[in-house]
Design a protein around this nucleic acid. Structure first.
Lengths: 153, 153
DNA sequence: CCCCATCATTGGTGCGCACCCATCAATTGC
DNA sequence: GCAATTGATGGGTGCGCACCAATGATGGGG
C-alpha cells in the first residue's frame, strides 16, 4: 500500500523556478546518460556544435563562446581529439594559438548526438503535443536569451 | 573587438532539451545561491515544504516522498534542526521512527525562502509577461508530472 | 630588443549531489 | 522468544562542474 504519497509538495510545484530546475535537471540527466554511453559529456557536444556552426576556433575562442574555463577547454578538446572528432593544428599566423577543427568523423558524431537529443526530447516532452512543444521552445528561447552569463552561461 | 561572437551555436539552441537544461541550470543556480546565503541548499527547502504541506513525517517517509537517499535525509534534517527549523522526536508508537516536525521558526524560514524563489523567478523569467509565465508554468507542470521511471530514475 | 600580455597546458581545489555499506536499536512474524 | 526486517545514523566513494595558480611558448609594443 502506497500510503506514503509520492506527491511532490505543492509549495514546491507552485514555483516555476522549481519546475524549471527539476525538468531541466531531468533533461540534462537523460541527455548526459546518453552521451555517457559514447564516453562524452555535455561540453563535448557543445564544442562539436560550435565548430560545426562557426567553423574552426582557437581554443581561447571556444572558451569565450561557451563561457567555459580555458583550462577545461583543453581537457574537452583532448577527449574529442582521441577518437578523432576534432583536429588540433597550430595557427601559422600566431603560433601560440591552437586551431581546433571538426573532422568528418566529428560531424558524423554530432549528428548522432543530435538524434540522441531528439530522443530525449521525445521522452521528456512526451506529455506535450507538437504545438505545445513549439510554444515551450519559443518561451525557453526567450528566457535563455535573457540570461546574463555571469555564472551560468 | 568582439569578433569572437558570444552567440551560442544554433545547433544547440535548436534543441528544446538544451534550452531546458540551460535555463533549468540557471534557475537552479540562482536559487541555490540565494539559499546558500542562509546556509541552506535545495533539499532543505524541499524538506521544509514537505513538512509544511503534509505535516510531520518519519524520515523514511521524507526519503520516499522526495526520492532522496535515507542517509542523506539524516544530514539534511541535522542541518535543519541546528537552527531550530525542525524538531525531531521519536514516534511513541514505533520507536524506531523519528518524527520530523516543522517549528514556527521553520515555517517562517520557508516563507522567506519562497520569497527568494519568487525573486529568482522575476529575474530568470524577466523576458516573459504574466500571461507567458503562466503558459510556461502550465507546460512545465505537465512535463514534470510526466517525469518518471523511463528516463530519469 | 626587451618586457609584458596572450595562449595553451598541467595539476590541483572545493562543492553539490547521488549512492552504498556497516552498525545499532526497535519491531514484527513465526 | 528468536530471527528477520525496518528505520536511523555515520562514514565513505565517485562524478560532474567550476575555478584557480603556475609554467612555458609566442607575439607585439615601447
Amino acid at each position: 500500500m502506497d500510503a506514503t504519497a509520492r506527491t511532490t509538495p505543492p509549495t514546491l510545484t507552485a514555483h516555476t523556478v522549481y519546475l524549471l530546475s527539476r525538468t531541466g535537471k531531468a533533461a540534462r540527466g537523460a541527455l548526459a546518460a546518453r552521451l555517457a554511453e559514447q564516453g562524452l559529456r555535455l561540453w563535448h557536444m557543445a564544442v562539436l556544435a560550435a565548430l560545426a556552426d562557426f567553423g574552426p576556433h582557437a581554443q581561447r575562442e571556444l572558451a569565450d563562446r561557451l563561457a567555459i574555463d580555458p583550462s577545461d577547454v583543453v581537457k574537452v578538446v583532448d577527449e574529442l581529439a582521441a577518437p578523432g572528432y576534432v583536429e588540433r593544428s597550430r595557427d601559422p599566423a600566431d603560433r601560440r594559438r591552437v586551431r581546433v577543427a571538426l573532422t568528418p568523423a566529428g560531424r558524423t558524431a554530432l549528428t548522432g548526438l543530435e538524434r540522441e537529443t531528439e530522443a530525449v526530447r521525445d521522452a521528456v516532452l512526451a506529455p506535450l503535443d507538437a504545438r505545445e512543444r513549439a510554444t515551450l521552445h519559443a518561451l525557453l528561447s526567450r528566457v535563455y536569451a535573457g540570461l546574463d552569463g555571469s555564472s551560468t552561461p
